[in-house]
């Protein structure tokens, strides 16, 4: 069973998904961060594959991408770092990245590598559903890899249904029309959208991302979905001075309190 299905089978509320950029702050922090996140209580971990032109990301994640690339991060390096990760980390791992580096790596090769190291799902924001279904779905299925789709407040009901039908694992609910880290709150005008999605009784669990930064916004998101995703706020937290593990455990505790 895919680790994500297992997670949502056991836990239907307050699922915390934390995002970090591979190769940031230092090239070889990947396994340290994964282990510290699991120990601190993250339920699911999303690893960002750095890219030179991350158009869906705001300044915080853009900068972490730039630093990671300067540090020498690439898919090859990332997969070698993740080689024995399943000896140490058991929570589901999701890779998030833009389509170009993956196409250059080779989609089939990428899916095989994901299976080999124990990655459970992938988020590719700039891969259209149409292209995925047409070109890549069989490769994903062959390697037991889930493709996570995004929906936003502007996504129509019909398209949300289509996303639900073609999704496995969970649906990534973008909280508002924005890039990552652009907003640090969840406002009242989003409640219509949350209610609309809730009333559709989707077959997949939902996690809310974008604008989730602390205990207050995490709680708010959890009232409206099975959990939430935190990215920019976590990157900011680990960018500060101090011991990496301590910063991670301090951050996760502050969110889950």
């Amino acid at each position: 069973m895919n680790r994500i299905d297992k997670l949502f089978q056991d836990k239907k509320e307050r699922v915390l998904n934390v995002y970090f950029t591979a190769g940031y702050p230092q090239l070889n922090d990947t396994t340290t961060i994964l282990e510290a996140l699991e120990t601190s209580g993250a339920d699911l971990i999303e690893i960002g594959i750095p890219y030179s032109d991350p158009i869906a990301d705001g300044p915080t994640i853009q900068e972490s991408n730039g630093v990671a690339l300067e540090n020498g991060m690439s898919l090859k390096v990332l997969f070698s770092q993740l080689k024995d990760i399943r000896d140490k980390v058991s929570v589901p791992i999701v890779l998030m990245g833009y389509v170009n580096p993956i196409v250059q790596f080779g989609m089939e090769n990428f899916c095989a590598k994901c299976e080999e190291v124990g990655v459970d799902a992938v988020i590719l924001p700039d891969l259209p559903m149409f292209e995925y279904l047409e070109m890549y779905k069989p490769m994903f299925e062959k390697h037991g890899l889930y493709n996570i789709f995004l929906i936003t407040p502007q996504t129509s009901d019909a398209r949300i249904k289509q996303v639900d039908e073609n999704s496995n694992g969970f649906i990534y609910m973008v909280s508002s029309a924005s890039t990552t880290g652009a907003k640090t709150s969840i406002s009242l005008d989003q409640s219509d959208y949350f209610a609309r999605v809730k009333n559709m009784n989707l077959k997949n669990p939902t996690l809310i991302g974008f604008g989730i930064s602390n205990a207050e916004t995490f709680d708010k998101a959890c009232e409206n979905a099975n959990g939430a995703i935190i990215g920019s706020a976590f990157i900011k937290a680990i960018s500060e001075e101090g011991n990496l593990e301590e910063k991670i455990s301090g951050f996760v505790k502050s969110v889950k309190q």
Partner: peptide, 11 residues
């Protein structure tokens, strides 16, 4: 060609 855009730009 095509339209490789994040869902946020889809509408």
């Amino acid at each position: 060609g095509g339209a490789f855009i994040p869902e946020m730009l889809y509408p």
